[in-house]
Design a binder for these strands. Structure first.
Lengths: 158, 158
DNA sequence: TTGAATTAATTAGTGTACGAATGATATTAT
DNA sequence: ATAATATCATTCGTACACTAATTAATTCAA
Protein backbone atom coordinates (compact mmCIF):
# COMPACT_ATOMS: atom_id res chain seq x y z
CA UNK A 1 0.00 0.00 0.00
CA UNK A 2 1.31 3.41 -0.94
CA UNK A 3 1.96 5.89 1.83
CA UNK A 4 -0.70 8.32 0.76
CA UNK A 5 -3.17 5.46 0.75
CA UNK A 6 -2.34 4.67 4.36
CA UNK A 7 -2.76 8.33 5.03
CA UNK A 8 -6.25 8.22 3.57
CA UNK A 9 -7.12 5.25 5.75
CA UNK A 10 -6.13 7.09 8.93
CA UNK A 11 -7.92 10.14 7.71
CA UNK A 12 -11.09 8.19 7.18
CA UNK A 13 -10.84 6.84 10.71
CA UNK A 14 -10.52 10.33 12.09
CA UNK A 15 -13.43 11.56 9.99
CA UNK A 16 -15.56 8.74 11.23
CA UNK A 17 -14.62 9.32 14.85
CA UNK A 18 -15.66 12.95 14.52
CA UNK A 19 -18.91 11.98 12.86
CA UNK A 20 -19.72 9.38 15.47
CA UNK A 21 -19.05 11.85 18.22
CA UNK A 22 -21.36 14.36 16.56
CA UNK A 23 -24.10 11.75 16.57
CA UNK A 24 -23.42 10.85 20.16
CA UNK A 25 -23.69 14.53 21.06
CA UNK A 26 -26.95 14.73 19.22
CA UNK A 27 -28.38 11.88 21.24
CA UNK A 28 -27.21 13.26 24.56
CA UNK A 29 -27.70 16.98 24.16
CA UNK A 30 -29.97 17.23 21.14
CA UNK A 31 -27.42 19.19 19.16
CA UNK A 32 -25.02 17.93 16.52
CA UNK A 33 -21.57 19.42 15.99
CA UNK A 34 -22.52 21.51 12.96
CA UNK A 35 -25.55 22.84 14.81
CA UNK A 36 -23.43 23.76 17.80
CA UNK A 37 -20.85 25.48 15.63
CA UNK A 38 -23.53 27.53 13.94
CA UNK A 39 -25.09 28.53 17.25
CA UNK A 40 -21.72 29.56 18.62
CA UNK A 41 -21.09 31.76 15.62
CA UNK A 42 -24.39 33.54 16.03
CA UNK A 43 -23.68 33.92 19.71
CA UNK A 44 -20.35 35.57 18.96
CA UNK A 45 -21.80 38.01 16.46
CA UNK A 46 -25.50 38.64 16.82
CA UNK A 47 -27.26 39.56 13.61
CA UNK A 48 -24.71 37.79 11.41
CA UNK A 49 -26.00 36.68 8.05
CA UNK A 50 -26.14 33.28 6.44
CA UNK A 51 -23.39 33.89 3.93
CA UNK A 52 -20.95 35.04 6.61
CA UNK A 53 -21.47 31.88 8.61
CA UNK A 54 -21.05 29.71 5.55
CA UNK A 55 -17.80 31.40 4.64
CA UNK A 56 -16.53 31.33 8.18
CA UNK A 57 -17.11 27.69 8.88
CA UNK A 58 -16.32 26.54 5.38
CA UNK A 59 -19.70 25.21 4.31
CA UNK A 60 -22.01 26.03 1.44
CA UNK A 61 -24.93 28.37 2.00
CA UNK A 62 -27.30 25.56 1.18
CA UNK A 63 -25.91 23.44 3.96
CA UNK A 64 -26.11 26.25 6.45
CA UNK A 65 -29.69 26.94 5.42
CA UNK A 66 -30.71 23.38 6.21
CA UNK A 67 -28.97 23.50 9.57
CA UNK A 68 -30.72 26.79 10.33
CA UNK A 69 -34.06 25.27 9.39
CA UNK A 70 -33.74 22.68 12.12
CA UNK A 71 -32.46 25.12 14.69
CA UNK A 72 -35.23 27.60 13.94
CA UNK A 73 -37.89 24.91 14.07
CA UNK A 74 -36.73 24.07 17.57
CA UNK A 75 -36.83 27.67 18.65
CA UNK A 76 -33.09 28.22 19.11
CA UNK A 77 -32.90 31.16 16.75
CA UNK A 78 -34.96 33.52 14.67
CA UNK A 79 -34.45 34.76 11.14
CA UNK A 80 -35.02 38.39 10.46
CA UNK A 81 -35.07 39.93 7.03
CA UNK A 82 -32.66 42.84 6.92
CA UNK A 83 -34.31 46.23 6.40
CA UNK A 84 -31.35 47.76 4.60
CA UNK A 85 -30.99 44.86 2.19
CA UNK A 86 -34.00 42.62 1.94
CA UNK A 87 -32.03 39.80 0.37
CA UNK A 88 -30.17 39.32 3.59
CA UNK A 89 -31.32 37.45 6.65
CA UNK A 90 -30.05 38.37 10.07
CA UNK A 91 -29.74 35.65 12.64
CA UNK A 92 -30.46 36.06 16.33
CA UNK A 93 -30.36 33.59 19.18
CA UNK A 94 -33.42 33.11 21.33
CA UNK A 95 -33.07 32.63 25.07
CA UNK A 96 -33.38 28.89 24.49
CA UNK A 97 -30.58 29.07 21.97
CA UNK A 98 -28.36 30.97 24.37
CA UNK A 99 -29.14 28.47 27.09
CA UNK A 100 -28.33 25.56 24.79
CA UNK A 101 -24.90 27.00 24.13
CA UNK A 102 -24.17 27.45 27.81
CA UNK A 103 -24.41 23.73 28.40
CA UNK A 104 -22.70 22.94 25.15
CA UNK A 105 -20.06 20.25 25.33
CA UNK A 106 -16.73 20.34 23.54
CA UNK A 107 -16.63 19.76 19.81
CA UNK A 108 -14.14 16.95 20.06
CA UNK A 109 -14.30 13.93 22.28
CA UNK A 110 -13.23 14.82 25.78
CA UNK A 111 -10.91 11.86 25.87
CA UNK A 112 -9.18 13.14 22.77
CA UNK A 113 -8.78 16.58 24.32
CA UNK A 114 -7.45 15.04 27.50
CA UNK A 115 -4.92 13.08 25.54
CA UNK A 116 -4.06 16.02 23.36
CA UNK A 117 -3.44 18.31 26.30
CA UNK A 118 -1.36 15.67 27.98
CA UNK A 119 1.07 15.93 25.08
CA UNK A 120 4.13 18.11 25.20
CA UNK A 121 3.61 21.63 23.94
CA UNK A 122 5.83 21.07 20.93
CA UNK A 123 3.98 17.89 20.05
CA UNK A 124 0.68 19.74 20.06
CA UNK A 125 2.11 22.42 17.81
CA UNK A 126 3.58 19.84 15.54
CA UNK A 127 0.28 17.98 15.22
CA UNK A 128 -1.54 21.20 14.46
CA UNK A 129 1.08 22.26 11.93
CA UNK A 130 0.82 18.94 10.16
CA UNK A 131 -2.95 19.21 9.89
CA UNK A 132 -2.73 22.75 8.62
CA UNK A 133 -0.19 21.75 6.07
CA UNK A 134 -2.36 18.89 4.92
CA UNK A 135 -5.37 21.18 4.60
CA UNK A 136 -3.27 23.51 2.52
CA UNK A 137 -2.00 20.73 0.32
CA UNK A 138 -5.55 19.62 -0.39
CA UNK A 139 -6.81 23.06 -1.18
CA UNK A 140 -7.35 23.18 -4.92
CA UNK A 141 -8.00 26.90 -4.99
CA UNK A 142 -4.34 27.72 -5.46
CA UNK A 143 -3.89 25.44 -8.44
CA UNK A 144 -4.78 28.00 -11.03
CA UNK A 145 -3.30 30.83 -9.05
CA UNK A 146 0.29 30.19 -10.07
CA UNK A 147 0.41 28.17 -13.28
CA UNK A 148 3.57 29.94 -14.35
CA UNK A 149 5.50 28.15 -11.66
CA UNK A 150 5.08 24.81 -13.39
CA UNK A 151 8.05 22.95 -14.69
CA UNK A 152 8.60 23.88 -18.29
CA UNK A 153 8.84 27.57 -17.87
CA UNK A 154 6.46 30.43 -18.37
CA UNK A 155 3.04 29.49 -19.63
CA UNK A 156 -0.03 31.46 -20.53
CA UNK A 157 -3.38 30.76 -18.95
CA UNK A 158 -4.99 29.85 -22.29
CA UNK B 1 -8.79 29.89 20.28
CA UNK B 2 -7.52 26.75 21.94
CA UNK B 3 -5.07 24.62 20.05
CA UNK B 4 -7.39 21.66 19.73
CA UNK B 5 -10.01 23.99 18.31
CA UNK B 6 -7.61 25.11 15.58
CA UNK B 7 -6.93 21.48 15.00
CA UNK B 8 -10.62 20.84 14.46
CA UNK B 9 -10.79 23.71 11.99
CA UNK B 10 -7.99 22.26 9.86
CA UNK B 11 -9.51 18.86 10.17
CA UNK B 12 -12.83 20.12 8.89
CA UNK B 13 -11.09 21.70 5.93
CA UNK B 14 -9.43 18.44 5.07
CA UNK B 15 -12.70 16.56 5.44
CA UNK B 16 -14.39 19.02 3.16
CA UNK B 17 -11.64 18.82 0.56
CA UNK B 18 -11.99 15.06 0.47
CA UNK B 19 -15.74 15.31 0.18
CA UNK B 20 -15.56 17.87 -2.60
CA UNK B 21 -13.12 15.70 -4.49
CA UNK B 22 -15.44 12.74 -4.12
CA UNK B 23 -18.21 14.78 -5.69
CA UNK B 24 -15.96 15.96 -8.47
CA UNK B 25 -15.03 12.36 -9.16
CA UNK B 26 -18.66 11.46 -9.27
CA UNK B 27 -19.36 14.06 -11.88
CA UNK B 28 -16.42 13.09 -14.03
CA UNK B 29 -16.37 9.33 -13.74
CA UNK B 30 -19.79 8.55 -12.32
CA UNK B 31 -18.32 7.02 -9.17
CA UNK B 32 -17.89 8.59 -5.75
CA UNK B 33 -14.96 7.74 -3.49
CA UNK B 34 -16.90 5.36 -1.25
CA UNK B 35 -18.28 3.60 -4.30
CA UNK B 36 -14.83 3.24 -5.74
CA UNK B 37 -13.40 1.94 -2.48
CA UNK B 38 -16.14 -0.67 -2.25
CA UNK B 39 -15.59 -1.77 -5.83
CA UNK B 40 -11.86 -2.06 -5.26
CA UNK B 41 -12.42 -4.24 -2.23
CA UNK B 42 -14.67 -6.60 -4.13
CA UNK B 43 -12.13 -6.68 -6.91
CA UNK B 44 -9.40 -7.66 -4.49
CA UNK B 45 -11.41 -10.44 -2.94
CA UNK B 46 -14.22 -11.76 -5.04
CA UNK B 47 -17.15 -13.14 -3.09
CA UNK B 48 -16.43 -11.01 -0.03
CA UNK B 49 -19.43 -10.32 2.18
CA UNK B 50 -21.00 -7.06 3.27
CA UNK B 51 -19.82 -7.21 6.85
CA UNK B 52 -16.21 -7.76 5.82
CA UNK B 53 -16.23 -4.69 3.65
CA UNK B 54 -17.85 -2.60 6.36
CA UNK B 55 -15.23 -3.67 8.89
CA UNK B 56 -12.40 -3.20 6.48
CA UNK B 57 -13.21 0.28 5.34
CA UNK B 58 -14.56 1.43 8.69
CA UNK B 59 -18.18 1.99 7.79
CA UNK B 60 -21.42 0.60 9.17
CA UNK B 61 -23.20 -2.23 7.41
CA UNK B 62 -26.13 0.07 6.77
CA UNK B 63 -23.95 2.52 4.89
CA UNK B 64 -22.33 -0.20 2.84
CA UNK B 65 -25.73 -1.63 1.98
CA UNK B 66 -26.87 1.69 0.54
CA UNK B 67 -23.68 2.07 -1.45
CA UNK B 68 -24.13 -1.47 -2.78
CA UNK B 69 -27.72 -0.65 -3.76
CA UNK B 70 -26.58 2.06 -6.11
CA UNK B 71 -23.72 0.04 -7.53
CA UNK B 72 -25.95 -2.96 -8.12
CA UNK B 73 -28.65 -0.83 -9.73
CA UNK B 74 -26.06 0.36 -12.21
CA UNK B 75 -24.91 -3.14 -12.96
CA UNK B 76 -21.44 -2.93 -11.46
CA UNK B 77 -21.90 -5.88 -9.14
CA UNK B 78 -24.23 -8.69 -8.24
CA UNK B 79 -25.33 -9.94 -4.84
CA UNK B 80 -25.47 -13.65 -4.30
CA UNK B 81 -26.93 -15.29 -1.23
CA UNK B 82 -24.37 -17.67 0.25
CA UNK B 83 -25.36 -21.33 0.11
CA UNK B 84 -23.43 -22.32 3.22
CA UNK B 85 -24.90 -19.51 5.32
CA UNK B 86 -28.03 -17.95 3.93
CA UNK B 87 -27.67 -14.85 6.07
CA UNK B 88 -24.63 -13.89 4.14
CA UNK B 89 -24.45 -12.15 0.80
CA UNK B 90 -21.49 -12.66 -1.49
CA UNK B 91 -20.46 -9.83 -3.73
CA UNK B 92 -19.13 -10.21 -7.26
CA UNK B 93 -18.09 -7.66 -9.84
CA UNK B 94 -19.67 -7.68 -13.24
CA UNK B 95 -17.59 -6.97 -16.33
CA UNK B 96 -18.85 -3.41 -16.21
CA UNK B 97 -17.72 -3.15 -12.61
CA UNK B 98 -14.27 -4.47 -13.45
CA UNK B 99 -14.03 -2.04 -16.35
CA UNK B 100 -15.04 0.85 -14.12
CA UNK B 101 -12.21 0.07 -11.75
CA UNK B 102 -9.66 -0.09 -14.52
CA UNK B 103 -10.24 3.54 -15.34
CA UNK B 104 -10.55 4.51 -11.72
CA UNK B 105 -8.71 7.63 -10.69
CA UNK B 106 -6.83 8.07 -7.44
CA UNK B 107 -8.77 8.45 -4.22
CA UNK B 108 -7.08 11.67 -3.29
CA UNK B 109 -6.66 14.72 -5.42
CA UNK B 110 -3.80 14.22 -7.82
CA UNK B 111 -2.38 17.58 -6.84
CA UNK B 112 -2.28 16.45 -3.23
CA UNK B 113 -0.50 13.25 -4.18
CA UNK B 114 1.93 15.17 -6.31
CA UNK B 115 2.69 17.49 -3.46
CA UNK B 116 2.86 14.66 -0.97
CA UNK B 117 5.31 12.68 -3.04
CA UNK B 118 7.41 15.75 -3.56
CA UNK B 119 8.01 15.83 0.17
CA UNK B 120 11.07 14.28 1.78
CA UNK B 121 10.66 10.66 2.75
CA UNK B 122 10.88 11.48 6.44
CA UNK B 123 8.26 14.19 6.08
CA UNK B 124 5.87 11.75 4.49
CA UNK B 125 6.43 9.28 7.29
CA UNK B 126 6.00 11.97 9.84
CA UNK B 127 2.72 13.13 8.35
CA UNK B 128 1.44 9.59 8.22
CA UNK B 129 2.53 8.91 11.80
CA UNK B 130 0.77 12.04 13.00
CA UNK B 131 -2.47 11.03 11.31
CA UNK B 132 -2.27 7.53 12.70
CA UNK B 133 -1.65 8.86 16.15
CA UNK B 134 -4.59 11.19 15.88
CA UNK B 135 -6.83 8.37 14.71
CA UNK B 136 -5.68 6.36 17.70
CA UNK B 137 -6.29 9.22 20.08
CA UNK B 138 -9.84 9.59 18.82
CA UNK B 139 -10.64 5.94 19.00
CA UNK B 140 -12.97 5.50 21.95
CA UNK B 141 -12.85 1.72 21.84
CA UNK B 142 -9.84 1.56 24.10
CA UNK B 143 -11.36 3.69 26.85
CA UNK B 144 -12.91 0.80 28.72
CA UNK B 145 -10.27 -1.63 27.64
CA UNK B 146 -7.62 -0.59 30.13
CA UNK B 147 -9.10 1.35 33.02
CA UNK B 148 -6.54 -0.12 35.40
CA UNK B 149 -3.84 1.89 33.73
CA UNK B 150 -5.30 5.16 34.93
CA UNK B 151 -3.42 7.35 37.30
CA UNK B 152 -4.31 6.42 40.85
CA UNK B 153 -3.30 2.84 40.71
CA UNK B 154 -5.17 -0.38 40.31
CA UNK B 155 -8.91 -0.08 40.03
CA UNK B 156 -11.69 -2.56 39.62
CA UNK B 157 -14.08 -2.34 36.73
CA UNK B 158 -17.11 -1.82 38.94
C1' DT C 1 -34.13 54.81 -16.50
C1' DT C 2 -34.50 50.55 -17.91
C1' DG C 3 -32.05 46.25 -18.76
C1' DA C 4 -28.17 43.15 -17.44
C1' DA C 5 -25.41 41.27 -14.11
C1' DT C 6 -24.66 40.15 -9.46
C1' DT C 7 -25.73 38.73 -4.86
C1' DA C 8 -28.41 36.36 -1.04
C1' DA C 9 -31.08 32.84 0.52
C1' DT C 10 -33.77 29.02 -0.47
C1' DT C 11 -35.46 24.71 -2.80
C1' DA C 12 -34.84 20.36 -5.18
C1' DG C 13 -32.29 16.38 -5.99
C1' DT C 14 -28.40 13.10 -4.96
C1' DG C 15 -25.27 10.60 -2.02
C1' DT C 16 -23.20 9.56 2.06
C1' DA C 17 -23.42 8.02 7.13
C1' DC C 18 -25.40 6.60 11.32
C1' DG C 19 -28.38 3.82 15.01
C1' DA C 20 -32.41 1.21 15.89
C1' DA C 21 -35.57 -2.06 14.50
C1' DT C 22 -36.66 -6.11 11.59
C1' DG C 23 -36.54 -10.63 9.53
C1' DA C 24 -34.10 -14.55 8.41
C1' DT C 25 -30.58 -17.76 9.75
C1' DA C 26 -27.16 -20.00 12.71
C1' DT C 27 -25.24 -21.25 16.98
C1' DT C 28 -25.28 -22.33 21.75
C1' DA C 29 -27.19 -23.84 26.01
C1' DT C 30 -30.39 -26.41 28.52
C1' DA D 1 -35.01 -31.02 20.58
C1' DT D 2 -36.05 -26.64 21.63
C1' DA D 3 -35.40 -22.26 23.54
C1' DA D 4 -32.39 -18.35 23.95
C1' DT D 5 -28.86 -15.85 21.83
C1' DA D 6 -26.16 -14.05 18.25
C1' DT D 7 -25.19 -12.68 13.53
C1' DC D 8 -26.09 -10.81 8.87
C1' DA D 9 -28.19 -7.89 5.77
C1' DT D 10 -31.75 -4.75 5.09
C1' DT D 11 -35.14 -0.98 5.95
C1' DC D 12 -36.41 3.27 8.17
C1' DG D 13 -35.77 7.76 9.85
C1' DT D 14 -32.56 11.61 10.62
C1' DA D 15 -28.85 14.81 9.48
C1' DC D 16 -25.23 16.50 6.74
C1' DA D 17 -23.14 18.29 2.49
C1' DC D 18 -22.95 19.31 -2.15
C1' DT D 19 -24.46 21.48 -6.96
C1' DA D 20 -27.83 23.46 -9.83
C1' DA D 21 -31.84 25.96 -10.27
C1' DT D 22 -34.97 29.44 -8.44
C1' DT D 23 -36.71 33.72 -6.42
C1' DA D 24 -36.02 38.14 -4.85
C1' DA D 25 -33.48 42.22 -4.37
C1' DT D 26 -29.67 45.24 -5.40
C1' DT D 27 -26.19 47.36 -8.21
C1' DC D 28 -24.15 48.68 -12.39
C1' DA D 29 -24.08 50.28 -17.12
C1' DA D 30 -25.65 52.18 -21.32
Amino acid sequence: MKKYESLLVSLRKVIRAIDLYSKKLSKETGLTSPQLIVLQHISNSDGVMVKDIATNINLSSATVTSILDRLEARGFLIRERSVVDKRKVELHLTDEGAAAIKESPTLLQQHFITRFEAMEEWEQSQMLATMERMAMMMDASDIDAAPMLQVGGIQTTE
